[in-house]
Each structure stands twice: as C-alpha cells, then as structure tokens.
Design a protein around this nucleic acid. Sequence first.
DNA 1: AATGAAATGATTGCACC
DNA 2: GGTGCAATCATTTCATT
Lengths: 144, 144
Amino acid sequence: MDRIDEQILRLLRENAQITSSDISKQVHLSVPAVSERIRKLEDTGLIRQFTVKLDREQLGLHLIAFVMVQIEKTEHIAGFRETVMQADCVLECHHIAGAYDYVLKVAVKGTADLERFISETLKQVEGVSKTNTMIVLSSMKEEM
Amino acid sequence: MDRIDEQILRLLRENAQITSSDISKQVHLSVPAVSERIRKLEDTGLIRQFTVKLDREQLGLHLIAFVMVQIEKTEHIAGFRETVMQADCVLECHHIAGAYDYVLKVAVKGTADLERFISETLKQVEGVSKTNTMIVLSSMKEEM
DNA sequence: AATGAAATGATTGCACC
DNA sequence: GGTGCAATCATTTCATT
C-alpha cells in the first residue's frame, strides 16, 4: 500500500467504472502495472466489492430510520440476528456498547412499513424488550 | 423499471465489474440491449455511482461509532454542517427527529482519535450542547 | 426497444528489463 | 515491480426489424 495504491483506490471509489487505461494516465504507470495493482488490492481483501449506489428515493424508499434495540437475554440473540439478516429493509445492524444492544439502519417506503417492521417483525422476536426509533429527516453525508 | 432492470440492478449491486456479456446471458437479452438499459438507469439517476467497498480494518479504521448531537440554536447549524462535511472520519450525517438533532457515523483508528474528534472538533463547534456516543462492537450487516 | 455484425477500445498474457 | 506488444475479450455503433 504505497502512494500510488492510495491514488488508485481514490479513483475507484469515485468511479469504479474508470478504465485501467485512464488510471494509467493519472498515476503515470503502464496499463498492466495498474491492472496488477488492482488485482492485488482485491486479493488482499482491501477492495471488498465493486458495487453500485442506488437512489433510494427513486426506489420508493422514502423513509430512513435508526432503530435501537435492547435484548433481554443472551440466548435470544441468535433469533434476533436471523430476523435482522433476512429483513430486506435492514440496511445495517451493529452490536453496540451502552444502554441499547443493537442499532439498525432501516429503509422503508413510509411510516406504515416502519410501524409494521417494528411491531410485527422486531417486537415479535423473543427477547426484544425495548426499542427506540430515530426518524431521519434528511441526510447530508452518506459514504461507505 | 421492469423485471429485467431489477435483475440487472441486483447483478450490478452484487458485482459492478460484471460484463454486459455476462448480464446478457442471465437476462436473455443481447449485449447492446443490456448496455442501453444500464446507460438509461444511470441517466435517470437510479444508479447514482459505481464504487468500491473497502475493508476498513485493513485501512486501520478499527473503531466505528454513532455520535448523536444536539444543537442549541438554528443559527449554529451552518457551521456544524461545514465541520461535518470536512471531517474525513464522518461517514454519515443525518438530521433526525427526536431528542437529538443529528446522528453521525464515525470511523477512526481508535479511542484516542474518537476522543480527539469529539472534544476538539465536534464540541468546538458553536451550538453543540450535548453529544451521546454509541461504540460499535461488531457489525453483522452493512449495506448501502 | 431489440438484434446481429463490424469497428473500436480495453484488458490480459508474455517476453524482457 | 515495471514495460511494450500482440492476442483476446468487451463494448459501441449502426443498419435492420
């Protein structure tokens, strides 16, 4: 991981569709040298995935919320994790330290779907004793 | 946005490096037809960006935290937003409804950097009256 | 909108430094 | 690790349906 790898990563993050030929011009290295570096960054796992960012609004997902969850007993965690992994509306799930045990980032069409997710999916999980929802009004920064 | 576009989006999200030729085989459409559909999905803005997911651990960013922020008066919001936009460690910043005004997702090397960010950057912003930090212990799901 | 075929452009493999 | 060149593979263009 030298200066040039950092430059390549910056260019790929900005636009993963950039050609090796274009990167080659910017980093002053031959095309095979650039391809080889990208291959190695993938092999070492530093580049985890090539993906696309979609416009959630256009997908009809107008409501983002953070839902904090408290789990009563450790034996209920496996069931909770399974529910969360299967729920398409859960974008993120983090185990956290503090008053709550987990924080979820959820994307749904609107308040009706959010209510349904919280009361019919989340609260039905054994051990889920308490939740606290923060509705997102707007997002001014959202990177990976 | 029909059935085929949805299929194409699913394939691209999974691996944006997939070739149009490979997509073409899976959706049973010719290569130019697939290219044209992808071009349109970009034009309409549904595909916002082609990008790469990096491994934060390998980048030395071992600590993720959610920081909730309360802002005293609305006139201080512009300064807060500028600070947040410029801070590289802030991955996300959402305006939220509830007891706090903003929630930030922060990635840093360790607790020292987190402390520095909160006390030297965030709390120096005029109007930031109260913060509440949730340290992430592990992440079991993290999509865009 | 979709197709096939030709032209163009990018990547890969390889011999060499 | 890096380069240049040739071979391979992918994408774009365009006439046609």
